[in-house]
Design a protein around this nucleic acid. Structure first.
Lengths: 215, 215
DNA sequence: ATGTTCAGTTGAACGTGTTCAACTGAACGC
DNA sequence: GCGTTCAGTTGAACACGTTCAACTGAACAT
């Protein structure tokens, strides 16, 4: 049946991606391993990028589950951000050997696997929801002025951390973990300070900039 | 002569990149247009990425010249940062249609064209020197604690702005310019505030983080 | 003159992602 | 039964980046 074939191609592709990475996994190998013709894989998935996109969806789902477990424990913004970001590093760890390749594919603006693409909508929503929960459930509560924009900013920060992770050659991605350990309290502190008169202006500028740039 | 051939391949490639973009410029087309065999192009340049790298070097040089003209006018950190970044947007503007492709190539960690690669050393040094001048020549002077790390941070910020620029579909890259107009005074303000007791801790954290993460 | 070397050059060949005209067979209408 | 349709499937074909064994010819040694 068609649906079976599609699922078979999908799972075969994901397995090979995990085993061999992106470049070393050829469309011919995927098709052969799945027992179908190359053209058939293309009937079900428009391109190799669309298959990678499926991998992202898997990983994002894993991360969302792990992140929700962290968020269930409560905590302040710093603790929650730290937990969610570290859960991300853990969820991605399995793929670090090929992470560079995959992020490369993801960052290509035209790519289906780009975090900003229409095709990635599902992963993106899933991931942004986690950050929304992160912000909304934090106690003490995040200042109201920031509550609306912060989730998206944190999601972007997570993308930045992931970009750093790609280039991180240290064992077990220690440097990325160090970055997270440093950046979470830093963001937490800045959010707290944003209510102070001296920083009020800067905070407003950030928000105004985000809004101006988005439209 | 060999050097002539190399220069010819180089200039032909750069012309075609400018005219057609990265993907649409094939190695065969470069070779044919230059009147040499395909293999000959590979004798002089290890890969297509290495040819793109030559384009980056050109653009970086243009940007450095424009940036130095801006810096010669003096000014405070905000004005200088704004000027240098806007000069960057202008220098890159010609390539915006294909910018996405090129940055994609650049960001691939293994790529010769990556801003962090050994091969890009020349462009990187050139560009980082500009930001060092930017910081050192600013008046009022940048706080001593920041003076050492800030140039590299600003260089990274420029990379971030460039990444944004890639995705910026607005006419004349208005949104990127808005981003620069907003982010320059923001950075300027934060640097000024970093001396205040309330922010002193956060500023130290940022520097400690940068150093911890770099090693 | 003749032989030797080797940087420079050639173009066919390889494996890749992707396309596409052709084929298959189950489902459906009559 | 029979014809028609079309989602699903096939594998050869295309253009690409890249490799490489073979060739060229100027420079030099004998």
């Amino acid at each position: 049946m068609s649906d079976d074939t599609k699922a078979l191609v999908r799972s075969t592709a994901l397995r090979l991606f995990r085993e061999r990475g992106y470049a070393a996994t050829t469309m011919r190998a995927i098709a052969q391993e799945a027992g179908v013709a190359t053209g058939n894989a293309y009937y079900h998935f428009a391109s190799k990028d669309h298959l990678v996109q499926e991998l992202y969806l898997d990983v994002t789902r894993e991360h969302a589950v792990a992140a929700r477990a962290v968020l269930a424990q409560g905590g302040d913004l710093t603790a929650r951000l730290r937990g969610v970001m570290l859960a991300g590093v853990d969820a991605f760890a399995e793929y670090h050997a090929f992470g560079a390749e995959f992020v490369t594919v993801a960052i290509r603006p035209g790519s289906a696997a780009s975090p900003f693409s229409t095709e990635s909508g599902a992963s993106r929503e899933l991931s942004q929801d986690v950050f929304r929960e992160l912000v909304e459930g934090a106690s003490p509560a995040v200042p109201t002025g920031l509550r609306e924009e912060l989730p998206e900013l944190l999601w972007l920060a997570q993308l930045g951390v992931t970009l750093f992770w790609v280039y991180d050659g240290s064992p077990d991605q220690r440097r990325t973990r160090t970055l997270v350990e440093g950046i979470a309290p830093l963001i937490g502190r800045l959010v707290r300070l944003s209510r102070l008169p001296v920083l009020r202006g800067a905070a407003d500028d950030v928000l105004a900039l985000v809004r101006a740039v988005r439209s």
